[in-house]
Nucleic acid binder design. Structure first.
Lengths: 188, 188
DNA sequence: TGGGTCATGTAACCTGTTACATGATTAG
DNA sequence: CTAATCATGTAACAGGTTACATGACCCA
């Protein structure tokens, strides 16, 4: 329902190609939205058909021509209306298969879980560090540029989330250790 | 991809109806998975056709007959294999439209945002308190029942997540206040 | 008498995933 | 020499959402 508005939002910041939109969702915006490449191209077609965006083609040699998409007034209108709704219930549609696997782990021997948690921790450390670096690099601009405040708020959401995930994963390793200790004692 | 395994997991804990499965996803399991009612019934049919679960119908008066589903050995096998993979990348497919609205809020006057944040905070406080109560009520059983450890780990994930969301939302209100203050000064 | 719970299901549509297809350029 | 990057797109399928349909029972 909102890939549409994600694309409109990106194009409202500046014209760009489908390739670049896709890259953004999978790198700098990965803590708020993600999308499949094929989905981005499909959605761009739909938005152009509805008259919310336009494209101009740039000839290239040795690779496919670039299609640079720009937002139209109707698209900006649609974007603004969507933003102003500020619904949050939608953000609670949690689907976390990793936690669900753990929840049902009484049916497993659980021997793979610690390895998975270590990988989870490493991965989240990397994600968190990336955001910490980005925040440090641009934080001084927040005082001058008003749009940077919203940027700051967003990346801090990513930081809070990744930090919470890290804290949980570390605690979980401890809990598993403690519990393993107790079980061993019981079996003696 | 994993509603299937969510249903198998629930049925592995005990036989139940589609109605009850749906209720679980939308109440006690809401911090790890959610599903649409129509989706649950569709998936139950698919699982029965594949021979992973069976059902027995119980006659009722005044309301539709109950279909009680039970897991079969093949279903339990499938569940166990799925659990043991412990993949976590899937849990990183974040789609948070509320944060995305904020990220693009330079195109809005942002006047609705504080109200939305207050609602967000109230909502998450309620969710968090529910988990705190549940944890307090059952925490003493963890030492006796081994499956309760996985339950504990899971609900603590929910707590960490909701707490992080709350902290972020409160900080965001502060940031908006501070920033609003500065803008007013600049306009004097 | 109106809303919530119990209880099933279908249909149409929208969104997301996986895999395929092509091919030059550039950096290590 | 190999992998990544740039750059487009399509097809088939899987999964998710919204709305409709039915109807008794219970509680305030």
């Amino acid at each position: 329902m909102s890939l549409k508005h994600g694309i409109l939002g990106l194009l409202a910041k500046g014209s760009m190609t489908g390739y670049e939109i896709n890259s953004d969702f999978n790198t700098s915006l990965n803590f708020m939205w993600n999308a499949q490449q094929s989905q981005v191209y499909r959605e761009l077609n739909a938005l152009e058909e509805k008259g919310l965006i336009t494209s101009t083609t740039i000839q290239q040699e040795g690779r496919p021509n670039k299609k640079i998409y720009s937002i139209l007034n109707s698209g900006l209108q649609e974007l603004i209306e969507w933003i102003n709704q500020y619904e949050f219930e939608e953000s609670l549609k949690i689907r976390d298969a990793f936690v669900m696997r753990i929840f049902f782990s009484e049916h497993s021997d659980g021997s793979n879980l610690p390895f998975a948690l270590h990988a989870y921790i490493e991965h989240h450390e990397a994600l968190l560090n990336k955001l910490i670096d980005i925040e440090a690099k641009y934080i001084h601009q927040v005082e001058q540029q008003s749009d940077m405040l919203y940027w700051l708020i967003s990346i801090r959401k990513g930081k809070f989330t990744f930090q919470a995930n890290l804290n949980w994963a570390r605690e979980t390793l401890d809990l598993l250790d403690q519990y393993k200790g107790k079980e061993d004692v019981n079996h003696e």
